[in-house]
Design a protein around this nucleic acid. Structure first.
Lengths: 352, 352
DNA sequence: CTGTTAGCGCTTTCAA
DNA sequence: TTGAAAGCGCTAACAG
């Protein structure tokens, strides 16, 4: 009932091997023969059987892109760019189409591992891991082991926006300079004259969270304000609700805050909402800053001061790396810097 | 080198068939035998070969979720919910883990078809299509044909936020009442006293665009304002930039606009930015309304009046439908209503 | 440049 | 309840 390669071969009056060759385009075939085969494929409306081909070739055309939260544009932009780069890359030779798919871990270590196993089962050609990693010794070890196995089976591993992991399993790691960005952002506030700065951090166990916070702390400490940092930091998740709640908590701990730095733009938006409800004007009464520079950040009122990360470019590069169409950076690691975007949500602190 | 099912069988001193049976859990196996097999799997760190299993069983555990724009939370929320529902659904029996993956078409009909072919190759267990469809006769026909083939091969097809298509290929269609929502939104403005209302629409060929616009027109026509609608409508894409540009264009055509309705919240945000640059206050000088009620919409200033769509719930339901764990609605079609959320971006028009 | 021949690793009747 | 054996549809040597 379902059309197989053998049917096409029969119709084109060639051997199955020849049909396979024209379909994969990786072997010399006479033009006239190819023509005939292609016609037969069309007439029979033949669709290659992926599993069969993957089984025989011991590799598939699946490329997995893991994200922590698919509803967050931070990941959506990177994933979309990677997927686009992977789709484009295949546009050339016939049959080279890769199936780039994104898998949503929801930030759960278990699901991350599960997806990796599922991808391993499918004999994925490559895997791209985006965003911060969870820093739990057990999970880190399990991930290292799993990645080693994947790499060992021929799967390319690319990290995007995630710190490199030890071992030689990784093809390439594109990591964001979260620390540097965090530091420059706080320095900007310090320069404006702020001294009591609250920090709404992400989940404590995430590398992204830790690095951004470390940057903030480094700036505070350099300004002789290191003692207060602990008390003025509140952890949450990377969503608006978290920014809202944490801001109220911070205000409770220190009502005289003159600025709030948020783990990312979404959190900053929640922080702004909380401040406004408290009757505080931004930036006259209190300054707010975010991180990432998501598309909406320039449009909100007041426009958000933040650190721009070239998410699209990084994702696209990760996609090319996964395809093998771009040579990995030296030692496999590239650090991508962020750019401080000063806008209207930050200003001089109010004289009191 | 790589561990196969046969290795596990040897180690557990049973036949390969038995191992397969305990792994798939769909066949009676003695408890002690199962125990032994599971232990062997663990000891050997065995990972099932997906392609081989898919080839033999003529079906895979892949479920594809197609989205128009993965960087847009509208799709991210639905896709995340669907993926979650699919992951959860498998938590029960062993081996039932489905690999739910999202594919980003970028709104391109060709890529949509390409992804469907790729999924067809993989013998996907199900496909979920989210968001508006492109209304081009050629593409509609090609899609219908492709979906019919997929369904014929045993792939379940679920539509989420997309109008049902004729034929019996579809397992279920969850469609949003875009028309009703659009109508109520404009009626709200009309009730406030607005008469010159601009409409920033999405891409002309998208069903979502057409339905929302039809709702708007119905309300305008009912109010005796139908004549002007054409002139006061500008088409664009579903992003902020488009909202920004179209708003300026609309203002050019009709400087006395008292309200602008946007195709979605993101576009509304861009519209707000343009209006503000023009020195117009919202809502004192001009009202603005969006659609979807994305998470940020309640936080922007002024908070956006919009139509809330239960994106998460719809996505989760689509996921369950794709898994076959929820019975399809009568005739396979369910219409999901939107809720008018009146917030601060709309108000009475200024007296002039 | 093209055909022949073995499998790839798993599932699934059919027997036992 | 378990085993034996026959493929699933394709690719990749190896000849020719």
């Amino acid at each position: 009932m379902t059309v197989t390669l053998a049917d096409v071969a029969a119709r084109a009056r060639v051997s199955p091997a020849t049909v396979s060759r024209v379909l994969n385009g990786n072997y010399p075939v006479a033009a006239s023969t190819r023509e005939r085969v292609l016609r037969a494929v069309d007439e029979l409306d033949y669709v290659l059987n992926g599993p069969a081909s993957a089984l025989a070739a011991a590799t598939s055309d699946l490329v997995g892109i893991l994200v922590n939260d698919i509803a967050d544009p931070f990941f959506g932009i990177m994933a979309g760019a990677a997927q686009h780069a992977i789709g484009e890359g295949a546009a050339g030779r016939a049959g080279g189409e890769k199936l780039a798919v994104v898998c949503n871990t929801g930030g759960s270590p278990e699901r991350e591992l599960t997806y990796l196993t599922l991808l391993q089962r499918q004999r994925a050609a490559a895997v791209v891991l985006t965003g911060g990693a969870v820093e739990d010794p057990g999970h880190t070890a399990a991930m290292a082991a799993k990645l080693a196995k994947l790499a060992n089976a021929g799967t390319r591993i690319v990290l995007c926006g995630r710190p490199p992991v030890p071992g030689d399993a990784i093809t390439a790691a594109l990591t964001f300079d979260n620390r540097g960005g965090g530091r420059r952002l706080t320095e900007h506030l310090l320069t404006l004259g702020h001294r009591r700065i609250g920090y709404v951090a992400g989940p404590a166990e995430r590398t992204t969270t830790r690095h951004r916070l470390e940057g903030h702390r480094a700036a505070m400490t350099a300004a002789g304000l290191g003692g207060d940092v602990e008390r003025l930091t509140a952890h949450g998740t990377y969503d608006r609700r978290s920014g809202y709640d944490a801001t109220l908590e911070l205000l409770r701990r220190e009502p005289d805050l003159t600025a709030i730095v948020a783990a990312n733009d979404t959190v900053a938006l929640g922080a702004c909402a909380a401040l406004r409800e408290r009757g505080l004007r931004i930036p006259q009464d209190i300054s707010v800053a975010g991180f990432d520079d998501l598309p909406f950040s320039v449009d909100v009122v007041p426009a958000l001061t933040t650190v721009r990360l070239p998410l699209y470019e990084a994702g696209a590069r990760a996609g090319r790396l996964a395809m093998g169409t771009e040579v990995p950076p030296p030692r496999g690691i590239a650090t991508i810097g962020g750019e401080l975007m000063v806008r209207s949500s930050t200003g001089r602190p109010r004289q009191r």
